[in-house]
Design a protein around this nucleic acid. Structure first.
Lengths: 173, 173
DNA sequence: TGATAATTGTTATGGACCATATCAAATATC
DNA sequence: GATATTTGATATGGTCCATAACAATTATCA
C-alpha cells in the first residue's frame, strides 16, 4: 500500500532509464520489480482510489468541488430536511469535522442550515437554488468526463461489475 | 465520497429507527437514501479501501505492520540493494516522508540502511534476518486472513477480475 | 413536576499523512 | 576545477481524521 498523491510526477523515470548508464554492458537498473505487491488488494485499491480522486478533481476544477463536497450535496439533495448528524453519519463524517465543511458550502451559498422548529437543537440542511444548479452541472461533468472514462477503459458491463464488487466489499468485508 | 474510518460505529442507527416515532403514522425517518451516491465510483472505491485497510490492520495486529510498512518490506525484499529514493518513489512516497518510515522499520530491526560504496550519498536498503522472518509471517497472515476473505466474498475468478480492473484504473485512468 | 440523562452543533486539540522548500555531503557535468 | 545535480535529511505547513469537552435543548422517569 502507500502511494501518495504526486506519485505520477516520477513517471518519466523509465524513459530516462537508459540515459544514466554509460555503456550497453551496464546493468539496466531502474524499473523495480513490484512482485507480489501488484496482487495485493490494498495496494492496488489505494492506487486506483488516488487516481480516481485526482481525475475527479480535474473534472470539477471549474466548480471547485471536492469528492467529499459533491457527496454532501448529492445526499442533501436526495434527503432534504435532514440534520447535520444524519447527513454526516451516513457519509462517515464525524460531526465535529462536518462543521467546517458546512461552513464552506454555506459560505458559497450552496446549502443552508435552518433551525428546526421541532427540535431547536438541530439544523435542517437544504440545498439553495444555486446549490441545486451547481449540483446539476456537477452531475453532468461527472457523468460525461469522469464516469464515462470508466466505460471507455473497462466497458459498460465491467464497470457495473466493478461497482458491484466494491459495494460488496464496502458493506460486507 | 468522503467516508471516515469510524463510520461503522453508527451502524446501530437503523435498528433504533422505530424507537423514535411515537405512532405508526409517523414518518419512518432514519435510513437515508444514498441515491446516486451508491453508483459513484469514487465513493464506493473510497469506502472499500477504508474497509480493506481496516481489515488489514486487524490481521496484522500481532506484527504491528501498517499497509504502507508491509509494502515497503515487500518491495525491499523483491529489490534488495536499492536506495531510499528508488524504493520510495516506486511506492509513491516522497523522500522526506520516507525518512521517518525507515527510522521506524530500522529501529525495530526489520530493515537496515547501508552506505553504498559506489555512491556514498545513498543508502542501500536490505531486510534484516528478523525483517525477512517477520515479512514471511506477514505474508501468511495476509494470505490466510486477509486475501482469503476476498475469495470467500467474491469468488476466485471475480477476485482476479477485480484486481485486474483496479490495476488498469491505477495505471491508465 | 423537576432532577438527571441524552442529543445537537460546536470548539479545541492532537495525530497521521501529504507536500514543498531547503540544506550539507557527495557526485556528475563540462 | 567550477558549477550543477543527486541523496538523505530537517523543518514546516496543510489537510484529514479522531477524541474530549461545552452550552443549549430535549428526553427520561422517579
Amino acid at each position: 500500500m502507500t502511494v501518495s498523491k504526486t506519485a505520477e510526477k516520477s513517471s518519466e523515470k523509465p524513459a530516462d532509464a537508459a540515459k544514466g548508464r554509460k555503456d550497453i554492458g551496464e546493468p539496466l537498473a531502474e524499473a523495480l520489480q513490484l512482485g507480489e505487491l501488484s496482487e495485493q488488494l490494498g495496494y492496488v485499491l489505494k492506487r486506483a482510489q488516488l487516481k480516481v480522486f485526482e481525475n475527479f478533481l480535474r473534472c470539477m476544477a471549474s466548480l471547485q468541488l471536492t469528492p467529499a463536497q459533491f457527496s454532501v450535496l448529492l445526499l442533501v439533495e436526495k434527503n432534504p430536511g435532514r440534520n447535520q448528524t444524519e447527513i454526516a453519519s451516513t457519509l462517515g463524517i464525524l460531526r465535529p469535522n462536518f462543521v467546517a465543511m458546512l461552513d464552506n458550502l454555506e459560505s458559497r451559498d450552496l446549502c443552508a442550515r435552518i433551525r428546526s422548529t421541532n427540535d431547536r437543537r438541530s439544523h435542517i440542511l437544504v440545498l439553495t437554488d444555486k446549490g441545486k444548479a451547481v449540483l446539476a452541472r456537477a452531475k453532468k461533468l461527472v457523468a460525461t468526463k469522469h464516469e464515462a472514462r470508466l466505460n471507455d477503459l473497462l466497458g459498460q458491463a465491467n464497470r457495473e461489475a466493478l461497482i458491484g464488487m466494491l459495494s460488496k466489499i464496502a458493506n460486507e468485508f
